[in-house]
């Protein structure tokens, strides 16, 4: 593209401003997580230049550390446990959603059958159901009918269902691009439809699977509302413990920022490692929409 404005310094100033605005709040949270609470409340201490401490992280993680941190006099195991719960719930529901979702997407793309239109439209419409709408019925059904409240399997089932419509949608646009000839060749060689799918198609849509996995994990990892309604004291996830620890006054900002940072780290890592897949997933969702 011809570009006459390349040397324009205003352009670079804009870029820098955007980067600062985007990263600023995150960096501020990172910095505060290493700050002592007295320094947070001392207006003489700068936001980014101060004596760092890992005491906040020690307090949050005291239960899972291999040593007993000297800075912590009473160890509250809530957060360490919540971190483990969050990991289990997010990982299992991601694996389930992907397995079930890719099979469904394949059926919708490659087969013409009675009821295909209905399934496809229903899936599409269910994409927009917000967690707030599911709050009352899921609470009622899971508590009184299924007896799945306070359990991992209960919340995993919810997250799987919540993410399926999106995963099916995204994966459809990747499966369409797989050349049908490959599948026909596999069939000629005597593969049944399941072998064709798992051995020929799946390896070819890895980028799509990666994108779908990141989106699913992110939602299950970050979700608060339904986890708050369904999970009990021992099965709580990190977002629930964070909201519970916010009080009106006297927030211990250092500790809560350390907690927030720990919750933010996995999504940040995914973004740094797989930003290309994320962008592909996002654009596939809208442009194919």
């Amino acid at each position: 593209m011809t570009d006459t404005r390349r040397a324009n310094p205003a352009f670079y100033a804009l870029l820098v401003a955007l980067i600062v605005m985007s990263l600023g709040p995150i960096l501020l949270m990172l910095a505060t997580s290493f700050k002592m609470n007295v320094d947070v409340y001392d207006s003489g201490v700068s936001a980014f230049f101060f004596t760092p401490t890992i005491a906040n992280y020690e307090e949050v993680l005291c239960d899972v550390l291999w040593y007993e941190p000297a800075s912590v006099d009473y160890c509250d195991p809530t957060f360490g446990r919540a971190l483990g719960n969050s990991l289990i719930i997010a990982l299992i529901s991601t694996a389930l959603t992907l397995t079930i979702g890719c099979m469904a997407a394949y059926a919708l793309v490659r087969f013409r059958f009675m009821g295909r239109g209905v399934v496809s439209t229903t899936t599409l419409l269910m994409r927009m159901v917000p967690p707030a709408v599911l709050l009352v019925p899921i609470f009622g059904i899971w508590t009184f009918q299924f007896g799945l409240d306070r359990t991992f399997s209960g919340i995993i089932l919810v997250y799987t269902a919540m993410n399926l419509p999106f995963v099916i949608w995204i994966l459809q646009s990747f499966i369409v691009q797989v050349p049908v000839q490959l599948e026909e060749a596999a069939r000629m060689d005597g593969a049944n439809p399941f072998q064709t799918f798992f051995l020929v198609v799946l390896p070819l849509i890895k980028p799509g699977l990666a994108a779908a996995a990141i989106f699913t994990f992110r939602i299950a990892w970050n979700e608060f509302l339904l986890a708050n309604a369904l999970l009990g004291r021992n099965t709580r996830t990190v977002p629930v413990t964070i909201v519970n620890s916010i009080t009106e006054y006297d927030i211990n900002w250092g500790v809560i920022m350390a907690t927030g940072m720990l919750l933010a780290i996995p999504p940040i890592l995914f973004t740094l490692v797989a930003s290309k897949q994320i962008i592909t997933g996002m654009t596939a969702g809208a442009v194919k929409g």
Partner: peptide, 28 residues
């Protein structure tokens, strides 16, 4: 640049709320 821009939307809404609550805090 695009990687930096995606970061805000990958972070948990709960944490986004926390960060902004801290920045909007009347004194700190």
């Amino acid at each position: 640049l695009r990687t930096i821009f995606i970061l805000p939307m990958m972070i948990a809404p709960i944490v986004v709320g926390l960060m902004w609550r801290y920045m909007y805090h009347p004194t700190v």
